[in-house]
């Protein structure tokens, strides 16, 4: 990575807006793996009180930002339009960004995933079943993807989903490119929402930006699983640990 200094405690900014719900447990996950965290409202960034480039990791947690009005993540995406330059600087400096569920929807609608040119190329649309779904699903990792977040993950594992608009859609050209560049990080083994190629998580080409529909912060401790499991199997842990280790 070529960093000159060693960062002992990476600084994580957890961007929230009205309706963001999963910020506390996402913050706790980062705290647990040794990061310094701050939950910041986007208004504080938009008003200039805080700057995203002062941080080492950006997190966009899950929730119903702006009530999912218009469509999930759309209003949040519109709000952060004016921060394009800041986001471009952050992404180009190869620092990690993780968007979980609603966060993934925001990244996609802002045009930061899978390509960071602020043009929307894919979307996350209504589940095929037509309603919100909350359950655990099995996913498998694409070991060939460049994502920095997947180190140490077992080949197949379970994560919980909770979303109404998780169906990834892209036209044939974009889809082919995603597959050939291995930008599909995770795929559902039993597709719950109809996503193309069963994609559950996307990365950018460098691998520092990830959008993931399932919730790793809800599969972080073994007690969060619907059946008894050993601590080592708490896969959510790896996503956060990898981000922090990468920055160090």
């Amino acid at each position: 990575m070529g960093k000159k200094r060693i960062i002992k405690k990476p600084k994580v900014i957890i961007l929230r807006a009205c309706g963001t719900n999963c910020d506390i447990e996402t913050e706790n996950a980062f705290k647990y793996v040794g990061a310094f965290t701050e939950r910041v409202h986007i208004n504080e960034v938009l008003k200039g009180y805080k700057n995203i480039n002062d941080y080492d990791i950006i997190t966009l947690p899950g929730g119903f930002s702006f009530g999912d009005d218009i469509s999930a993540g759309k209003i949040f995406a519109l709000r952060i339009k004016s921060l394009y330059r800041d986001f471009k600087k952050f992404i180009d400096s190869k620092r990690p960004i993780i968007g979980i569920c609603n966060g993934f929807q925001v990244l996609v609608k802002t045009g930061l995933l899978p390509y960071s040119d602020f043009k929307q190329r894919v979307t996350l649309f209504l589940n095929d079943c037509g309603h919100f779904l909350c359950r655990w699903v099995k996913v498998k990792v694409n070991k060939k993807s460049p994502s920095i977040f997947i180190k140490g993950l077992p080949e197949e594992f379970y994560l919980p989903i909770a979303h109404g608009e998780g169906k990834l859609i892209a036209d044939d050209i974009v889809s082919q490119k995603i597959i050939s560049s291995n930008l599909d990080v995770l795929r559902y083994i039993d597709n719950p929402n109809g996503s193309i190629y069963n994609i559950a998580a996307l990365t950018n080409e460098f691998g520092n930006v990830i959008g993931i529909m399932p919730h790793p912060e809800r599969a972080f401790f073994s007690i969060q699983f619907p059946w008894k499991t050993r601590e080592e199997n708490s896969v959510g842990f790896h996503f956060f640990k990898n981000a922090v280790e990468y920055v160090k």
Partner: peptide
């Protein structure tokens, strides 16, 4: 009914409305 309700948010739900293999 239950599968439409988010019973996991906040990440503290140890015993959920459905549990076990395949819930």
């Amino acid at each position: 009914i239950i599968q439409q309700y988010d019973h996991e948010v906040i990440g503290q739900t140890v015993l959920k409305p459905f549990c076990g293999v395949n819930e």
